[in-house]
Design a protein around this nucleic acid. Structure first.
Lengths: 355, 355
DNA sequence: ATGAAAGCGCTAACAG
DNA sequence: CTGTTAGCGCTTTCAT
C-alpha cells in the first residue's frame, strides 16, 4: 500500500483478510470463552499442572461446551512433534507381521501416538516412493519390517534425522535402532533339531523373500554339515514359492518335493501357512506325520497349536518386537536416550506333534 | 513493546527471534536456490502447468540438489487438506479385514494419500477415545469397519464434517457413505443353501461380535422356518466363542456342539478359521466331511480353497470394499460429488467340498 | 506467469 | 502462574 487513497484518513484499518476459515472451533475460541489467553488454554490441555486449578476448570468447561478438538497438524508444526509413527511392512496380507503391527499400534496408542501404515510390497521398488511420502509427514519415528537394504533409502532416512527402528532381522550396521533376531541362527538350529529327532533326508519349502531365503541357506548349510544331504550334494532339496506364502503353495510345494525326492523325511517350511499346506497334502495322500514326514513351520500363528497333529514351529515374539520398537521410538521422541539400541529378541523352537 | 528503550533510534531492527529451527531444508531454501519466490516454487511442485518450463526446470534442480522433502504438516495446515485417511478396525489380528485394509492402503497410496490405522477393539469403549485422536489429525476421510453404533461417536463424526465411509455392514441410516453387505441376508441364504443340500439338523459356531451374532440370528430364524430345528424349538443349537475367532475355538466349539447335540448334520461357522477348526476336530475324531457333517465358513480366506476337503464358504469381496471406500473418500476430498453413497457389494456362497 | 502479504492453529521463547 | 510476541512451513488471496 504505497499511496493512500482518497478515503477518510480515519478509515477503519482494512478488515482482516479472513481465509477459508475451516469454520471449526479453535483454541482461541476456547480461550476466549474461558477468559484466558490462548497459550494458557494450551497449557491447561497439555500441561495441566502448570496452570491454576481454577483456570484448568474453566478451560475444561469451555472445551466441553464447544466440543473443541485440538488440531494436531497445527500443534505438530509448531512444536515439531507430530506424534505420528510410520510403519512399513512388505504386505499386511501375510499374517506374519500382524502381531508386530498390532502390538505397535496398541503400545503407541497408549502413549498418544498414532500409526501410519505403508506397504512396500516384497519388491524394493515401491519402498523409495513410500519413504518420500513418509518423511514428508515428519513422523516422530519410522518402524521398518526388515532391514533397509537400498543405500538410497538409508541415506534419505539418515538425512531426515527421524528415529528409525529396523525389525525382524539382525545386522551389525543398522541405520539407527534394531529389534530383531537372526535368520541364520534359526536355519541352523532347526537343522540341528531335526537331526536330533533322527531325520536324515531333509528339505525346505521357502517363500522367495530375502529373509526366508537366508533361513533356507543357513538350514541347508547346517544340514549338509550334519550329513543330512544326499552324498556329494552341497545343499538340500528345496522348493521356492512366491511370497506371500499360502496353504496352497505349501501343498503344491510338498508335492513337487516328493516327486523329485520321494525319500525325504522332514520339511522345514518358511511359514506356518506353508506347513499347514504340507499337513493338508499329507493327510490327502495318507502320509503319516511325523512318522513318515516331519514338518516344521515358522511363526507360531494362532492356529499352530491346535492343528492335528499340532505344528512344531519356530516362535517369533512379534508382540515383544512391536512393543520394544514403540518404546524405542517414544523414548527418542521424548528425549530419553535409548540405552542399547540393538535388541535381539531371539526365537524358540516350539516342539509339538508334527516333528 | 509499549515504550522505546534508550537504544539508538537507528538501531538495527532486533534480529529475528529464531526458534527451534528443525534445521531442515524448507521451500524457502529451494526457492532461493532457484531464484524465485517461495510461492512460485510451491506452484512448480504442486501445479507444474502453472509455471514456465524454465522455472520448473530450475526448481526441480534445486529440489534435487537440496534433497528437499515438502512438509505435509505445514501444507495440510495451510490448505486444509491433510491427504491422510484414517481406518478403524476392531483388530488387525483377525485376518478378516486384512484384504480390505490392504486394498484401502494401496488405492490410497496410488493417489497420494496415506493411511492411519486405529484399532478399536471389539468392545466399543476405546472407539470414542480413538475417534478424538483421529479427528485431531484432520484426516480427509475416515473408514470404519462396521457401522458406528455409539450415538456419541456419530455426533462427533458428523460435527467434524469429515467424510465417513462405514463398511462391512448395511444400514438405511449411515452417517455419511457406506460400502457393505447384509449380514441378515447371509444368514438366511446359508440356511437355505444347507436346506437344499439336504441338511436338517443345523447348528452354528459364532464369534461374539455384533455382526456375527446377527448372521447367526438370521440363520437360526430361517432354519426354523425351513424346519431345520428340533420340533418345538425356535432356534438352532449354537456355541458362541470370543472374537477374534481361532482354529482352537472352532475345535472346542464343535466338540461342545456335538456333546449336546450328537445328531447335527451341518455347522455354519462365523469365520473360516472356525471352520478350519471344525474340519480339524472332525479329522481327529474320524467324522466324515461333508457326509456326516457339512461345514460352511465365512471369509474365503486364502487357505479355504486348498483345504482338504475344500471349504464351502461365504465370500466377501474385501478388495472391492477397500477400493470403493478409497474412491468415495478421494472423490469427496477432491470436491467431486459421490453419486450413490450407499453401495451393497453383496456376497457369494462358494460351493466346495465341505458342504 | 510471478510475487507480496497474510494467516492456517498452534506452541516456544521470553518476559512479567 | 499468566501473557505477549513471533514464528513453525506452507498456501491462499489479491495484485501485477
Amino acid at each position: 500500500m504505497s499511496t493512500h487513497g482518497p478515503d477518510d484518513a480515519a478509515a477503519a484499518p482494512r478488515e482482516k483478510k479472513t481465509r477459508r476459515g475451516a469454520g471449526g472451533i479453535t483454541l482461541r475460541d476456547v480461550a476466549k470463552l474461558a477468559g484466558v489467553a490462548p497459550i494458557t488454554a494450551s497449557r491447561a490441555l497439555n500441561t495441566p499442572s502448570a496452570v491454576s486449578p481454577e483456570v484448568l476448570q474453566r478451560v475444561r468447561e469451555a472445551v466441553e461446551r464447544t466440543g473443541y478438538v485440538p488440531n494436531m497438524l497445527a500443534g505438530g508444526l509448531a512444536s515439531n512433534k507430530s506424534r505420528l509413527v510410520a510403519a512399513v511392512v512388505p504386505t499386511i496380507a501375510g499374517p506374519v507381521f500382524l502381531e508386530t503391527v498390532q502390538a505397535l499400534t496398541e503400545a503407541l496408542a497408549e502413549r498418544g501416538y498414532q500409526l501410519m501404515l505403508g506397504q512396500s510390497g516384497y519388491r524394493d521398488s515401491r519402498e523409495d516412493a513410500l519413504l518420500e511420502t513418509i518423511i514428508g509427514r515428519r513422523p516422530d519415528g519410522v518402524v521398518l519390517t526388515g532391514i533397509m537394504r537400498s543405500p538410497e533409502g538409508r541415506r534419505r532416512l539418515l538425512a531426515s534425522g527421524i528415529p528409525v527402528v529396523e525389525t525382524w532381522d539382525l545386522t551389525p550396521t543398522p541405520i539407527d535402532m534394531l529389534v530383531g533376531f537372526s535368520h541364520e541362527k534359526i536355519g541352523a538350529e532347526v537343522a540341528a533339531y531335526l537331526h536330533r529327532r533322527g531325520c536324515r533326508r531333509v528339505a525346505t519349502i521357502s517363500g522367495d523373500d530375502e529373509r526366508a531365503l537366508r533361513r533356507h541357506r543357513a538350514f541347508s548349510d547346517a544340514a549338509v554339515k550334519l550329513g543330512m544331504a544326499l552324498r556329494g550334494e552341497n545343499k538340500v532339496p528345496s522348493v521356492v514359492v512366491p511370497a506371500p506364502t499360502t496353504l496352497g503353495s505349501g501343498r503344491r510345494g510338498v508335492a513337487d518335493l516328493l516327486a523329485g525326492h520321494p525319500d525325504i523325511d522332514a520339511v522345514f517350511c518358511s511359514s506356518d501357512l506353508l506347513a499347514l499346506g504340507v499337513l493338508t497334502e499329507a493327510q490327502a495322500r495318507g502320509i503319516r506325520i511325523p512318522e513318515q514326514l516331519a514338518v516344521v513351520g515358522l511363526g507360531d500363528l494362532s492356529f499352530a497349536a491346535d492343528l492335528h497333529p499340532a505344528l512344531t514351529t519356530v516362535r517369533i515374539d512379534g508382540t515383544t518386537i512391536g512393543r520394544t520398537a514403540a518404546q524405542f521410538i517414544i523414548d527418542r521422541a521424548e528425549g530419553r536416550p535409548v540405552a542399547s539400541p540393538i535388541h535381539d529378541v531371539g526365537f524358540t523352537i516350539v516342539e509339538r506333534g508334527s516333528a
